[in-house]
Lab assay of single mutants.
Amino acid sequence: MSRVPSPPPPAEMSSGPVAESWCYTQIKVVKFSYMWTINNFSFCREEMGEVIKSSTFSSGANDKLKWCLRVNPKGLDEESKDYLSLYLLLVSCPKSEVRAKFKFSILNAKGEETKAMESQRAYRFVQGKDWGFKKFIRRDFLLDEANGLLPDDKLTLFCEVSVVQDSVNISGQNTMNMVKVPECRLADELGGLWENSRFTDCCLCVAGQEFQAHKAILAARSPVFSAMFEHEMEESKKNRVEINDVEPEVFKEMMCFIYTGKAPNLDKMADDLLAAADKYALERLKVMCEDALCSNLSVENAAEILILADLHSADQLKTQAVDFINYHASDVLETSGWKSMVVSHPHLVAEAYRSLASAQCPFLGPPRKRLKQS
């Protein structure tokens, strides 16, 4: 649940008159999402009104509101027999009622949201009550392989729920002597030191190019640089560091992050930047690179990204790559990247197969709970 924001200063709310007192009302909304995959969808019983329910879910471990999704594969009634019906059901509720908006969509073979439908307002739910769409999607369109909505005969539904909580009022009075504290510009100011090479005390040599930097900042941000300058190493004695395995453009992006906490060109060089972040123990930059690479996972590059993640101990990226390969196994196994990995990294192939087997055979063990970014 997000923290209630402070109200904007009255002088910034309007260029008009300023009242002596004010009130700011925040209506709290808890948002969460749920993904439900139905394997072997074409084998569902086709009687009209037949119901399939998901397991229950909530916004978190401490949330007492429990929900589930309900599907009628062949419609709810005679009117909707040519459609799939989809509903959000409130299973248990400690209150007399709650209000919530919802959005349903289908994830296609690429994991993209399609055929989205959402409620136009927050509906009133009581325990045992459901709301949804009797005519969510035509069955003939859903079952047509050309539309790519049932890869490997799996129907994957994605649901986003927004639950309306209580409202909170914050009130106060205006004073004539309003003090406005300026925003912190530390990142910009440190970035200026790097860009202008002011007050530098060490030189970093990268592929024949020299960059002036500040030992204190490098040591504070990177345990690797800290070790170089702290001990009686040649880098500490000469205040000069030779860097041979990072390209200059990648190095500059890494230094921008060290000084400012930002990497504006990360998406263009996420793979190389991940390697640099791993070498210099820049954990936050490493996770930022993992996130960017996750966003660009595809059938063509899944094997290469899995190898990269394994090489640099990028655990979150590795998990996402394995899950992606499992979901698109029939396509990924035909790529040149996968065939190369079979020869060069057989242990990763074995890991992917083990994960695929456990996903398809849940009876082999208890269900695993899916539970950071600093």
Rank of each mutant, 00 (worst) to 15 (best):
M1Y: 00
M1K: 00
S2H: 04
V4S: 11
S6M: 09
P7Y: 05
P8L: 02
P8C: 07
P10R: 10
P10E: 03
P10F: 11
A11I: 11
A11G: 09
E12T: 10
S15F: 05
S15Q: 09
S15D: 11
S15E: 04
G16N: 11
P17S: 08
V18M: 15
A19T: 03
A19K: 08
E20W: 09
E20Q: 06
S21V: 12
S21N: 04
W22T: 00
C23I: 05
Y24F: 04
T25A: 01
Q26K: 04
V30Q: 11
K31G: 11
Y34L: 03
M35R: 01
M35W: 14
W36T: 02
I38C: 04
I38S: 01
I38P: 00
N40K: 02
N40V: 03
F41T: 05
F41C: 07
C44K: 01
C44L: 05
R45H: 02
R45N: 12
R45W: 07
E46W: 10
E46Q: 10
E47Q: 03
E47L: 05
G49S: 01
V51Q: 02
V51L: 07
V51A: 05
V51F: 04
I52M: 02
K53V: 04
S55H: 03
T56A: 08
T56E: 11
F57M: 08
S58P: 08
S58Y: 06
S58G: 09
S59Q: 05
S59R: 02
S59P: 03
A61Y: 03
A61C: 07
A61S: 12
N62R: 09
N62P: 10
L65D: 12
L65Q: 12
C68F: 03
L69H: 13
V71Q: 13
N72V: 11
N72K: 04
N72T: 03
P73N: 03
P73C: 09
G75L: 11
E79F: 07
S80F: 10
S80L: 10
K81D: 13
D82S: 11
L84K: 12
Y87G: 01
Y87H: 03
L90Q: 05
V91I: 04
P94N: 10
P94A: 04
P94Q: 08
K95N: 11
E97K: 12
A100T: 12
K101T: 14
K103I: 13
K103E: 12
S105G: 13
N108S: 01
A109I: 01
K110N: 09
E113M: 04
E113A: 04
T114K: 01
K115R: 11
M117F: 12
M117S: 12
Q120N: 13
Q120A: 13
Q120H: 11
Q120G: 02
Q120D: 13
A122F: 08
V126Y: 15
Q127H: 10
Q127M: 13
K129C: 11
D130M: 09
D130W: 00
W131F: 00
G132Q: 00
G132N: 00
F133A: 11
K135E: 07
F136K: 00
I137D: 14
R138Q: 15
L142F: 03
L143N: 14
G148I: 08
L149S: 02
L150Q: 10
P151H: 09
K154Y: 12
K154C: 09
T156R: 10
L157R: 00
L157C: 11
C159M: 03
V161E: 01
V161Q: 14
V161H: 07
S162Y: 05
S162G: 11
S162T: 15
S162M: 10
V163R: 14
Q165H: 08
D166P: 00
V168D: 05
V168A: 01
N169C: 03
I170D: 07
S171N: 03
G172C: 02
N174R: 07
T175M: 04
M176R: 04
M178G: 05
K180D: 08
K180I: 07
K180V: 06
E183H: 05
C184A: 03
R185M: 07
R185H: 09
A187V: 05
D188S: 07
D188Q: 07
E189L: 11
E189A: 01
L193A: 07
S197I: 15
S197P: 01
F199A: 15
F199C: 15
F199Q: 15
T200Y: 15
D201I: 01
C202M: 13
C203H: 11
C203V: 15
C205E: 15
V206I: 11
V206Y: 15
A207R: 14
Q209A: 15
Q209H: 07
E210M: 11
E210Y: 15
F211H: 14
Q212R: 12
H214L: 03
A216N: 11
A216G: 01
A219F: 10
A219T: 08
A219Q: 10
A219N: 15
R221H: 12
S222K: 00
S222H: 00
P223V: 14
P223A: 14
P223N: 15
V224N: 11
F225V: 14
M228G: 08
H231I: 15
E232G: 11
M233W: 05
E234W: 07
K238N: 06
V241F: 03
P248R: 03
E249V: 02
F251K: 00
M255Y: 08
F257I: 02
F257H: 08
I258N: 01
I258T: 01
T260E: 08
P264C: 02
L266R: 02
D267F: 08
D267N: 07
K268G: 10
A270L: 04
A270N: 09
D272E: 01
D272W: 08
L273K: 01
L274V: 02
A275S: 04
A277V: 08
Y280T: 10
A281S: 06
E283G: 05
E283A: 07
V287E: 06
E290I: 10
E290W: 12
D291C: 09
A292K: 11
L293T: 11
C294G: 15
S295D: 15
S295P: 06
N296L: 14
L297I: 14
L297M: 10
S298G: 09
S298I: 04
V299W: 04
A302V: 02
E304R: 08
I307P: 00
L308S: 09
A309H: 00
A309N: 02
D310I: 04
D310T: 09
H312D: 10
S313V: 06
S313N: 05
Q316G: 09
Q316C: 05
L317E: 00
L317G: 01
K318H: 04
T319V: 14
T319G: 06
T319N: 04
A321F: 00
A321W: 01
V322N: 11
V322K: 11
F324G: 00
I325Y: 01
N326A: 08
N326T: 11
N326R: 07
H328A: 13
H328W: 13
H328T: 03
H328L: 03
A329K: 07
D331N: 05
D331H: 12
L333V: 08
L333S: 06
E334N: 01
E334R: 11
G337H: 05
G337D: 13
G337Y: 05
K339F: 04
S340V: 14
S340T: 09
M341D: 00
V342S: 14
V343Q: 10
H345E: 04
P346G: 11
P346K: 01
H347C: 09
L348Q: 03
L348S: 03
V349K: 00
E351K: 01
A352Q: 09
R354E: 12
S355I: 13
S355P: 08
A357S: 04
A357P: 09
S358L: 04
S358R: 06
Q360W: 12
C361E: 13
C361I: 13
F363I: 15
L364S: 13
G365Y: 15
G365W: 12
G365V: 13
G365K: 12
P366M: 14
P367W: 03
P367L: 13
R368C: 15
R368Y: 14
R370Q: 14
R370C: 09
K372P: 07
K372Q: 05
Q373N: 15
S374I: 11
